[in-house]
Amino acid sequence: MGASLKDVAHLAGVSVKTVSNVVNNHPHVTPATRERVRRAIDELGYRPNLTARHLRKGRTGIIALAVPELGNPYFAELAGAVIDTAARHDYTVLLDHTAGRREKEVLVTQGFRTHVIDGLILSPIELETSDLLGRRPDDGPLVLLGEREYEAPYDQIAIDNVAAARTAVRHLTGLGRRRIAFIGARRETARRPAHLRLRGWREELLAAGLPCDESLVAATDGYGRWDGAAAMNALLDRGARPDAVFAYNDLMALGAIRALVERGVRVPQEVSVVGFDDIEEGRFGAVSLTTVAPDKQAIARLAVERVVARLTGTSGLRPERIQPGYTLVTRESTAPHTV
């Protein structure tokens, strides 16, 4: 049988209430007492009963994270950051996979697991505002991640995708690149997440005094490596030879690089390539990938903190739209034109 709060209190020479205050990180404990209690906890191997703690508050101690594709390294890395952050708040994370399908995104927001979870963090692809308004049967915290903006009463966390895309294109124009392709546009673009990055591509080209050559926009059916390679090959096949590529994400950028190399095009000398997401895989290719790096740690921290704040009543009533930062990470896939 494990040690109890009473055992810790007896060894530390303090009250059970004081031990509880230390375990729950309450501020009104002197540093000396806090250290004495922590030594007793370590000596006895005491572990708080988190389940009981949550149940006393009418909660399960579980937050759900629903993402469109667990096989995408970006979402895997984001999930890891959310799990680590939630653990610091004594929460467990339940992962859900929507495959980017509207019906599954609607299902997870309708509260079919309200008896299991305390709150939901969702990265939607196809979800509409109408799905969010009037279809949720419970009032549990919901935090939305990603590019799309919703006129809905929920917290939303996303980097400025237009500005981030402009940063990527500005980097390429600063290298003297003039025919910059965009890979990753989807059909019905206005309803898809890629439209903000495509908009940033257009805005920055116009700001640089360059034409927005729509023949350099490659539509795809998905966002994976094969989609990037197929889009790159399609551009080359129709004679729309770019001198640079800005891809919707790193996976597509890596696919584009593979297609270029297989066709004898030198990267970055003839064609520079920029991705988006800063997944770990992009750092270890034969040509390491220049990319826009969203602050995934900040996204995870803010998402979990918003859920916890709403559960504990420390958050204001009005929903917030929060923009974490991003950086451009320059690697070997971009360089001045040297044909």
Rank of each mutant, 00 (worst) to 15 (best):
Ile159Ala: 08
Arg170Glu: 08
Val108Pro: 01
Asp155Phe: 07
Asp138Trp: 05
Ala87Leu: 15
Leu127Arg: 04
Gly100Gln: 03
Leu142Ala: 05
Asp96Val: 12
Phe182Ser: 03
Ile121Pro: 03
Asp131Ile: 04
Gly176Arg: 03
Glu103Gln: 13
Gln110Thr: 12
Ile121Glu: 02
Thr98Ile: 08
Pro124Trp: 02
Leu95Asn: 07
Tyr154Ser: 01
Thr167Val: 12
Lys104Asn: 11
Arg135Ile: 00
Glu147Leu: 08
Asp96Gln: 14
Leu175Val: 00
Leu142His: 08
Thr85Pro: 09
Thr85Asn: 10
Ala168Glu: 05
Asp96Phe: 12
Leu120Tyr: 05
Glu128Ile: 01
Ile117Glu: 01
Ile159Ser: 02
Asp90Trp: 14
Ile83His: 15
Asn161Gly: 11
His171Glu: 14
Asp155Val: 05
Tyr150Ser: 10
Gly111Cys: 06
Val106Ala: 11
Gln156Ser: 12
Leu107Val: 07
Leu132Gln: 02
Pro124Ala: 08
Ala181Ser: 11
Tyr154Pro: 02
Asn161His: 13
Gly176Val: 09
His97Cys: 12
Leu175Arg: 10
Gly140Cys: 10
Pro141Asp: 06
Glu126Tyr: 07
His97Ala: 13
Val162Trp: 01
Asp131Pro: 09
Ala158Glu: 04
Val93Asn: 06
Ile183Pro: 01
Ala158His: 10
Gly176Ser: 06
Arg136Trp: 06
Gly111Phe: 05
Thr98Pro: 08
Pro137Ser: 14
Ala86Asn: 11
His115Ile: 01
Ile125Arg: 10
Asp160Asn: 15
Leu145His: 05
Lys104Thr: 10
Ile183Phe: 04
Gly140Ile: 07
Glu149Phe: 13
Gly140Ser: 13
Arg170Met: 00
Asp160Gly: 10
Leu142Ile: 12
His89Glu: 13
Pro153Phe: 04
Asp138His: 13
Gly111Trp: 03
Val106Gln: 15
Ile180Thr: 06
Gly146Glu: 06
His115Asn: 09
Leu94Lys: 11
Ile83Asp: 12
His97Ser: 13
Ala87Trp: 09
Ile83Phe: 13
Gln156Leu: 10
Glu126Asn: 09
Glu128Lys: 14
Leu172Tyr: 07
Thr173Tyr: 07
Ile117Gly: 01
Val108Ile: 15
Gly140Val: 00
Arg177Met: 08
Arg135Pro: 00
Ile83Arg: 12
Ile157Lys: 04
Thr114Pro: 00
Asn161Ser: 14
Glu105Arg: 00
Arg88Ile: 00
Glu103Lys: 12
Asn161Met: 03
Asp139Ala: 14
Tyr91Thr: 03
